[in-house]
Design a protein around this nucleic acid. Structure first.
Lengths: 207, 207, 207, 207
DNA sequence: TATGAATGAGTGTTCATTCAT
DNA sequence: CATGAATGAACACTCATTCAT
């Protein structure tokens, strides 16, 4: 029996389910959100949801995977429109500075995201998967930019690109977590300040 | 007839329950860990647990509260043995540098801790409580040290103490989260590096 | 696609649950009867029961509500086939005389019914609900008949209809309770006797 | 080892427990009231309570037994100060008329009492016990008075004493139950009215 | 006897998952 | 494929009863 509905239809349906699931997980957390919540939010029947995903866990996983992909794409998409390592790094900083982590919806999404990452620390398979497609990717991504900067002479010779990459993500994660937990956190200011410090460290200072 | 068991006995029992609960929450997360898990781990009967705590939630809260208190004490305890702001700030950095976030038990505890903080973002009352006893305390703590440094002339005059405090905790949180999620994260190195950058920024540079 | 099962099916299922619940409550009392008892008696799964009722309490309430409705209907149904107040009042007496409170099933139902009414005395909301749909209805019902009898001259002019109505239900409740608790209670005789006394009091005696 | 405390002490302690138990059962009902409620109300320890009663059920039974005894005594106590059957019957009516079933404490006690009687209908042994010491006693008590009245010629010759006795308790139970469940119930009026009707029926009417 | 901490079977309720229609 | 009723294994929590002190 050949497929009755188009692949496009299925992809669309899956997307709808994932969107509703994200909204529900964001509002209540993965464990507390129920399949019925997703049914109510999406107006897709319980049976239908189980036609597309084999468990609640799978929805969660696919959702997080999707989010990672989107972030990956977001990062890579525009980076090539910048030529120098300096521009590229500044672009990355500004990208995160431009995010408003205090926006309620954004905030909830961030919380789910970090909950997921913490959750993954309890499941070795999951952790390795995330490491591969998450942490490693992000570290590599910045590492390459810094390596480029060192090679082109934009950045100091004795810079350790990997260390800078880790520094970058430490700052981003730290600032994001703080912002989500602490209303008065000066997110933009801190990132600007960090940006300054990091760039100062990287750039050859003229004497 | 005086109490059947001493206050000390009760405190001990409570502590046992909290320890087991922490182990269980660490292993599975708050939601997934069951009271029966705690029973199995502690060899204390279910009824007994409910004699000491009125709900699973209360165990969680008390556990986190205890952890916050301990951290508060840890920070304040030795700080007065240092006189200058510089020494004090270095002590704080070194305190966190000396922690091994890769130690399995420590790691699990850290995960529970961050999960709790994320969880609190969905409960306004809890969030306010944590803000008061957590975030605010930590920010104030570092702010005061920096203010002292500015006043004594150790640090530059144009330093914004609140911003530095936020910077400090951004770095600590960022590094801790990374370490917990990413095995190859160079925790110590990053903190040393950050320590250098922050101190450089604060200290009057000799010309 | 229309509903998976018909409304009729659902109504039937609800009825089954209520029937089993009544049997269980009758046998053990509301508090002592467990949801598992109802599951065992009805062969309907626990989950299914909770699809139709949101709590054990709700089953109880709906059961009692249903019983009240049925009694209300029973009373009102045939009353209009009688014209005079005398006939109507006699019909009411005879209706209750014709009930056999010693029949085991009937007896159990009566016990649950009175337990529910007593139970309601501890819950103000429930008490008011019952007052409205129960006591008040029954009192009014008889009051109107007696008022009619007074107006048409069937009954003495100085009769207080409300008092007679209360008298009527006092007798019915008293006899029902006695019958349920005391095997040798001469239910029919007592009601016949009461009927005589009440009618004598109401009717104009010829001199 | 001879008893360390006097019998009197024990009796007193038991009484205290029973009093607290009655208060608790009255407020919440037998099933809902917990041993801890009784502990809190009586300030007697849980262990001590179990020294005097072997179960919650036993407390209930003894309480109800005690109540029955007290009622029995109340009825028999003053009855002999009246000579004629008429006076005695009037005394009984007036005794119940003088009770205020709307008084909150009294009301709660009445509710427990009827709950107990209904509860007993599910336990054959209990039912028989109550029948013997309760229903039968009360019926006999009134029957004898009426028999006396018939013998002395105070009452009509064709009166059936047993029927009158049942009539009497039907009225008392009916009025009490109504009063407890229905705030606007004209308890005193109804009993006065019933008293009149019953006495009219019993007494030789002068032509 | 008095105490109250400990016990654990039992309770109402939830919810991920299945499957007949 | 879609539906949502059915399932039942869990789960948090209660409470009568026991027993070491």
């Amino acid at each position: 029996m050949p497929p009755i509905v188009s692949e496009e239809y299925k992809r669309q349906k899956k997307k709808e389910i994932l969107n509703s699931a994200l909204a529900c997980f964001a509002k209540k957390g993965f464990q507390a959100a129920t399949i019925d919540d997703i049914v109510a939010h999406s107006s897709i029947s319980k049976g239908a949801i189980y036609n597309y995903f084999k468990s609640k866990e799978e929805i969660y996983l696919e959702l997080m995977n999707e989010q990672t992909n989107e972030t990956n794409e977001l990062l890579t998409e525009k980076i090539n429109s910048f030529q120098t390592a300096t521009e590229r790094l500044l672009y990355l900083f500004d990208l995160y500075i431009s995010i408003d982590p205090f926006d309620p919806d954004r905030k909830e999404t961030i919380v789910v995201h970090y909950e997921f990452r913490l959750h993954s620390s309890r499941d070795e398979n999951l952790r390795l998967l995330l490491q591969e497609r998450g942490n490693r990717f992000f570290i590599d991504f910045v590492t390459k930019i810094v390596e480029q900067g060192v090679k082109t002479g934009e950045f100091k010779k004795d810079i350790n690109p990997i260390m800078v990459a880790n520094l970058f993500w430490t700052i981003i994660d730290g600032a994001t977590v703080q912002a989500v937990l602490y209303k008065e956190y000066p997110y933009q200011n801190i990132l600007e300040c960090m940006k300054g410090m990091v760039m100062d460290t990287l750039l050859e200072t003229k004497s």
